[in-house]
Nucleic acid binder design. Sequence first.
DNA 1: CTTGCGTAGTTGTATAGTACAACTCGAAGG
DNA 2: CCTTCGAGTTGTACTATACAACTACGCAAG
Lengths: 140, 140
Amino acid sequence: MPERAQSVDVIHAQLNLFARRVRALVNRLHPDLSFVAYTLLAHVHATGGCRAIDLAGYYLLDKSTVSRQVTDLERRGLLDRVVGPGRPTAQILRVTPAGQKKIEAAGRQQRTVLEERFADWSAADLSAFAGYLERFNDEG
Amino acid sequence: MPERAQSVDVIHAQLNLFARRVRALVNRLHPDLSFVAYTLLAHVHATGGCRAIDLAGYYLLDKSTVSRQVTDLERRGLLDRVVGPGRPTAQILRVTPAGQKKIEAAGRQQRTVLEERFADWSAADLSAFAGYLERFNDEG
DNA sequence: CTTGCGTAGTTGTATAGTACAACTCGAAGG
DNA sequence: CCTTCGAGTTGTACTATACAACTACGCAAG
């Protein structure tokens, strides 16, 4: 088996484990804001406001799933909707101040866990790993 | 913000996206063998036989969850159980020939998708990325 | 205008994955 | 013997999710 194929194989195996563990880990970390809810909220935050359908596209989710998640986040006061200027049928989602606090707290917590985990990695390795992850995701 | 913290930040953001997408991708890939079922089966295969509780530990799942998944895999003929010699209360799980076929087919399919995705990566980058993933997972 | 299409979103319904707690079953040791 | 322990199963409930059917609104073609 050529070298490339071997690497792909390892990546394949590790991805499965990885995806499972990250999800489980994050859900344990802050039970009041689920993995999914957090990621959606964080994306709205990162984009500075987007539509529900953008979230669906980004995370490969059905729009109904996003609709329910957003409804829940709004009900909890972490998100609000404004009618987009010019595009009346499109609601622009925005993170509320309460939502920002929540994101920051959850993010801090998660980063703390990650920092521990990476304690013995060199700065160069860390930055390389981050680069590879970005590259992989961007190409998707 | 120091360089390390920045990298951790990027990794943190990418991990969320990554975990979500991989799961969605894999589930679409072979609807007859779910992401979870596949990973459990693959682990039993990789270890050459293990107990249900080992799976739970490895994937951070509750034993009840594993119990149901295993029951389902057994019902479908992909897995069987043998009573462990000496430890009567422990069932050793083993992949059946049919299960092996399934794993291989699903694995082939997933690798094909991954190979496409990595088409423009150099062998060195691929191998480095694989190494980082392994390292990250091993430390968990 | 008005009809019909397209986009964004919601709701009905069904299913998988998961956790937690209560239980069973058999071993091993005092 | 009785207790405790480890592995597993079952009851129950909840979350995330998909798919399909529906609503609401604007826009363009007639």
